[in-house]
């Protein structure tokens, strides 16, 4: 039995306080990814299965290099947000939740940076 009122008991609960910001970043990155995904499918996807020399030559184009770097970095920010949304929906238990939220975000940032670095290194002459 608690003597708190209904209002007193629920105040401050039920919201992560940053929901609108996360939602907005999701929309912002999705809009950016529309043209970037098409550029990636157009310029980079055909290089899968090709030769190393063809790939090096393709990334000499600033357009291909820049759109690919943007695609990779923004895609991983979008993925980090999406995975966070899935994790908070399905994972219960504080310890597991924190471990998964921290690890997915760090891995996504690491992957985004690694992909961007790889493209930059090729573009500047691997």
């Amino acid at each position: 039995m608690t003597y708190k009122t209904d209002m007193g008991r629920v105040k401050g609960l039920g919201t992560a306080k940053e929901g609108t910001h996360e939602w907005w970043i999701g929309r912002l990155t999705s809009v950016a990814l529309i043209p970037l995904t098409l550029c990636f499918l157009w310029k980079v996807a055909p290089l899968i299965g090709g030769t190393h020399a063809e790939l090096l030559a393709a990334f000499q184009s600033p357009f291909t290099a820049i759109t690919t770097i943007l695609f990779i970095m923004i895609a991983f920010v979008h993925l980090a947000g999406g995975l966070q949304e899935v994790i908070v929906d399905y994972v219960h238990g504080k310890a597991m939740l924190v471990v998964l939220l921290v690890s997915t975000k760090l891995v996504c940032w690491g992957m985004g940076f690694a992909g961007a670095f790889a493209v930059a290194k090729i573009a500047f002459g691997a």
């Binding site: 899968i48 190393h52 790939l55 090096l56 990779i72 895609a75 991983f76 993925l79 999406g82 995975l83 899935v86 992957m111 690694a114 992909g115 670095f117 790889a118 493209v119 290194k121 090729i122 691997a126």
Partner: peptide
């Protein structure tokens, strides 16, 4: 969305390999 995580990691690995 979740399933594409695998392809995303593979593409980064592929690009890192190309840069190596």
């Amino acid at each position: 969305g979740v399933a594409m995580s695998l392809a995303a990691v593979l593409i980064v690995w592929w690009l890192l390999a190309a840069a190596t």
